[in-house]
Design a protein around this nucleic acid. Structure first.
Lengths: 208, 208
DNA sequence: AATTCCAGAGAACAGTTGTTAACTGGGTGT
DNA sequence: ACACCCAGTTAACAACTGTTCTCTGGAATT
């Protein structure tokens, strides 16, 4: 099944990956809707027309980037939430996890935060769909918890979305503070921690 | 003081306003970083060079749009939060208020949601600054409440930011559902209501 | 009534864009 | 060894972009 793909398809995927990474880099200081096809190929060092061998348009490339970027966020969100339900020190650890991920993959986080509400419809939809799936996973994780006894499925999902959104907001704040004084990052860390704690408290008293 | 500005400056402000509104319309299906100067003037019906009489660049126009768009959000956020602290039916009313505002000024909401993390730095900063000021107002409003006794100023501000962010998330969801079946809007309304309720519960038990 | 001012028009600039077409040359299956 | 395939190239296209300079006509000032 895992057929060793020939040196031809290998080279193609290599170029494709180069296009994706070049685009991600160029998107640091602009949005996808202003990203030019030629701009990307120029950054990679291939002819403009080579672009069409991989993507129909830059919007198409954007959809591909969603998979790439959210694939890395996937692990973060899961581990974050599963750790965030209980004690305070575990919440703090979860926030630290977010900060670490932002520092490791800033371009991914930036892309998702920017294009989630961006000007390219197919990309918005792709991100929305993926985030819904994330929220469902988080809900399943929350359901395993003892605190979730007596909760309806819908309410667990609404809490899951609250967590996911809060995580993205926090990630975006960390991103903007990447080259700011460390005391600023510390401040963000503390606020995010307390916001998660407050949500956790609301969760524990939901069924009163 | 309120000098009746001559028919000259009046005409200028009229054109300026036309440029702003045309831009807001064009931004329905793209981001600011891809908005062209000529595109805007063409929509208004003036020469491209007339643009420079009002704005240095499209980024400059974007900053001006922030004032315009957040001016209308201003009232909404305040009334929403001041109503959201207590009983359930008041929370529901607050959510309905958000939905109404989104229906009344969809372009404003879209612009803020899109450009908050968009590709134009000065605009991002302008939005961030305004949202900080909003959060401070919300904090002052929260402080007046009986539930806030014993709260530190920092904690009130962190709750205020939580409310503001939650409001923007909800507004963006309503926006995307503008031409969706009404049952979808109803679903969003219900989830948002419960999320605000959960935050409110967390707030009441914060000092345990 | 004469003069200054200035929002907007007009024309032209070099540079960019997406897309089409025909071509090249090395990997691939027979 | 052969013929096919196809990722990437080259060249050219009309259309578009931001920006500069010069000009105009009516409002504003004196």
């Amino acid at each position: 099944m895992s057929h060793t793909l020939g040196i031809r398809q290998a080279q193609k995927q290599k170029t494709r990956q180069a296009l994706l990474e070049a685009a991600l880099g160029l998107l640091e200081e602009q949005s996808l809707s202003s990203l030019g096809l030629r701009e990307v190929t120029r950054a990679v060092g291939v002819a403009p027309t080579a672009f069409y061998r991989h993507f129909r348009s830059t919007a198409d490339l954007g959809v591909a980037l969603v998979e790439e970027a959210l694939g890395s966020l996937h692990a973060m969100i899961r581990t974050t939430v599963t750790a965030a339900d209980t004690g305070d020190e575990r919440i703090a650890r979860a926030v630290q996890l977010i900060a670490g991920h932002v520092a490791a993959y800033p371009a991914h986080v930036r892309f998702i935060a920017r294009e989630r509400h961006g000007g390219v419809q197919p990309v918005r939809e792709a991100i929305r769909d993926q985030l819904v799936r994330f929220a469902e996973e988080v809900r399943d994780e929350l359901a395993k918890d003892a605190v979730s006894e007596g909760w309806s499925d819908a309410d667990l999902l609404m809490l899951a979305h609250l967590y996911v959104d809060q995580m993205l907001v926090t990630a975006s704040l960390f991103l903007e503070s990447l080259d700011a004084p460390q005391e600023e990052q510390e401040r963000i860390r503390q606020v995010a921690t307390r916001q998660l704690r407050l949500i956790g408290i609301g969760r524990r008293h939901w069924l009163d």
